[in-house]
């Protein structure tokens, strides 16, 4: 394709084409990673659809050259599903926050994972609601003090890795915005993966999360590929999935937890085996045989 990073940047548009996240925001690492990934995969922008959720993270598609859909809060995955089933030749990528994907949209996440649609879902997990100025999120640690939980969060955080594994996800990974090279590799693997790819990304929010900072993560994250972790072993993946809480927030594995190949939802719809739905001819539909059945 011969495209460069700059080919995936707009020179105008929302905020003149420049991300308006706070300086130091983890989202900068993620946008760098996705652009690298799209270049490495030699994808044509016209064949890529980025779907953003609501929140700071959801604005990412405004600044990456491709078709973009800014969905309603929590509803990125149904939109992505409709787009993918309509034209499964497109590369469909979701960018949503932890509130979007693990809170209001949790139901859709589980069902999308079951469906094993060939879609990559990148969750910008900053463990807080940023754009609405600092409330708790489903992944906030217990005791986290925010505008909506001044006495500290009572519930335990959602475990997206374990949830994904028990929903039979075929690709489960965690990345870190503080290591965008590693993240770019994970995103590339996730997009290449034939099936649903969940990539949970630890994303420091410099303005509203003074607990889970870059320093905090740097002391705790380690790469699964630098151990003998076998990502085809689901039991091993579950063990790693619980390591964060088992070590009382001391050790946080990143990398690919689990990967397997299973027929995708599209594979099991023979109607689109020959060509995508959008390319079907709709001008010569004959309903006579069915009408005759009603006589």
């Amino acid at each position: 394709m011969g495209l460069k990073i700059s080919d995936f940047k707009y020179k105008f548009g929302y905020n003149g084409g420049l991300p308006n996240w706070c300086p130091g925001c983890g989202n900068f690492g993620i946008i760098t990673a996705i652009r690298h990934s799209l270049v490495n995969l030699e994808l044509d922008p016209k064949d890529v659809v980025l779907i953003g959720g609501i929140g700071c993270s959801g604005k990412l598609p405004q600044w990456v050259v491709s078709y973009g859909f800014h969905a309603l809060h929590g509803r990125t995955l149904p939109v992505a599903t409709g787009i993918k089933l309509s034209n499964h030749e497109l590369t469909v990528i979701v960018h949503a926050g932890d509130g979007d994907c693990y809170g209001i949209g949790l139901g859709h996440l589980i069902h999308s994972i079951r469906r094993n649609l060939d879609v990559a879902c990148i969750v910008h997990n900053n463990q807080v609601y940023g754009l609405t100025t600092g409330q708790t999120s489903p992944t906030s640690l217990k005791g986290f003090k925010t505008k909506s939980t001044p006495e500290g969060v009572i519930e335990l955080p959602i475990n997206p890795i374990a949830l994904a594994l028990s929903s039979d996800a075929t690709f489960v990974a965690r990345g870190y915005a503080g290591d965008n090279r590693h993240l770019a590799e994970l995103i590339t693997e996730g997009i290449k993966h034939k099936g649903f790819a969940l990539i949970d990304v630890l994303q420091p929010c410099v303005t509203f999360n003074r607990v889970n900072t870059y320093d905090w993560f740097n002391d705790r994250v380690y790469k699964l590929e630098e151990t003998d972790h076998d990502f085809t072993d689901k039991d091993a993946a579950f063990e790693k999935a619980f390591e964060w809480e088992k070590t009382n927030n001391e050790k946080i594995p990143i990398g690919i937890f689990y990967k397997e190949t299973r027929p995708t939802y599209e594979d099991e719809n023979p109607q689109i085996a020959e060509k995508p739905l959008v390319k079907h001819d709709i001008t010569k539909i004959d309903i006579e045989p069915v009408l005759n059945m009603l006589i």
Binding site: G82, S86, N87, G107, H108, L277
Partner: peptide, 28 residues
């Protein structure tokens, strides 16, 4: 199958409507 459509029984009505919008956005 007869008419080459995709018919999806969704997890809820919110998914149903949003999926239809996604599909229409993509040209169907």
């Amino acid at each position: 199958r007869r008419f080459g459509m995709i018919v999806k029984h969704t997890e809820d009505e919110i998914a149903a409507m949003n999926m239809a919008i996604g599909a229409a956005y993509a040209g169907v």
